[in-house]
Amino acid sequence: MNRISEHPILGETEKGQLVTFFMDDKMMEGYAGEPIAVALKAAGLMVHRYTHKAHEPRGIFCAIGRCTDCVMIVDGVPNIRTCITPLVAGMKVQTQDGVTALEVNK
């Protein structure tokens, strides 16, 4: 797991309520209020989107809403910076392919 259960200086990280959300039709868990990207990282997901022309993978890069590398489709809206957008229960997050949702093989 990628979550730090206890930290030598910070102790335990304060967390919101444990909620479920959808990631490309798969149910996942995360804490309400933490950035979507953090919940995805905790689950080990690295690829947030593929670029339009070269179809190259992109993920978290700056984590402060500056670089836009981590954008995804959230509740149907593309180009949402997942590193600064808080997770809400029941959110529908999709891997972005160019500016549309990636077709997921079920």
């Binding site: 967390k15 950035p35 953090v38 978290i60 890069f61 700056c62 984590a63 402060i64």
Partner: peptide
């Protein structure tokens, strides 16, 4: 540009603000 290449600030944000490695 591969996912997994990050800024040092991103590392600090993840581990020190959000408790994630």
């Amino acid at each position: 540009t591969l996912p997994g290449v990050i800024g040092a600030g991103a590392a600090q944000t993840m581990m020190n603000l959000y408790g994630i490695k």
